[in-house]
């Protein structure tokens, strides 16, 4: 564990907490994409299939449980909670998530480190995580008026990705044989998707104005 990975995990954790805070205390999920949240639930479910069979550390297992629990509870809130579900922008959040899942599954079947059930699903989760933010970014672009918590949620998620890249660079130079092309390329693609959002986020922060995206 290095400082970059810890920082990445903590910003990831913070992003989930910000979203849960918004949903739990304000009882609103306005501006949050259910499609993206469902994709994240699938990402964690397919990646952490080995939670019972492979043990890395208490920290790892605990974090896996937190990410699994939080992603599924966010989906539950948005779909079934009687007040929260009414604040969901159903008509704007129309991204077809099958268009993301199918290519990711095909790519995982073609490009993987080992052709085993767990390994292919694990690789699928990497590819899917890389593009899972897209429905959220599209929704953001459509609704345009973004409240602070939604903006902070996406900002923290992007921060998590940035720290993970620093973590990989650090591990590459400090650990022998640490080479994981699939993880790196998927992670890099994911981080690049945030670049545009970050640009406008910093612009609004610099000008001390509410975040607004161009049409």
């Amino acid at each position: 564990m290095n400082i970059f990975r810890l920082a990445g995990d903590m910003t990831h954790l913070a992003s989930v907490l910000v979203l849960l805070l918004k949903i739990h205390t304000i009882k609103s999920c306005a501006g949050v994409s259910l499609k993206t949240q469902e994709l994240y639930a699938i990402v964690f479910a397919t990646r952490y299939l080995d939670i019972l069979t492979s043990f890395v550390s208490i920290y790892n297992t605990l974090m896996k449980l937190i990410f699994l629990g939080s992603s599924f509870s966010i989906v539950w809130y948005m779909k079934y909670h009687k007040t929260v579900r009414r604040t969901y922008d159903r008509d704007q959040d129309t991204f077809r998530h099958w268009f993301l899942m199918l290519p990711c599954l095909l790519l995982a079947l073609l490009i993987h480190e080992k052709f085993t059930f767990f390994e292919v699903l694990w690789t699928f989760s990497l590819y899917l995580e890389a593009v899972a933010i897209l429905p959220q970014l599209v929704l953001l672009q459509r609704t345009r008026n973004i409240d602070n918590l939604t903006g902070q949620y996406i900002f923290l998620l992007g921060g998590y990705r940035g720290f993970y890249i620093l973590n990989w660079i650090y591990r590459y130079f400090t650990e022998p044989h640490y080479v994981h092309w699939i993880t790196w390329i998927a992670g890099l693609v994911q981080t690049l998707l945030y670049a545009d959002f970050f640009y406008y986020y910093f612009l609004s922060w610099k000008n001390n104005k509410k975040l607004q995206l161009p049409a």
């Binding site: 990975r5 995990d9 974090m63 896996k64 080992k114 694990w122 993970y164 044989h177 640490y178």
Partner: peptide, 10 residues
């Protein structure tokens, strides 16, 4: 072990 090593991240 190698496969496990690549899975030690979240």
């Amino acid at each position: 072990l190698d496969a496990l090593l690549s899975h030690d991240e979240l």
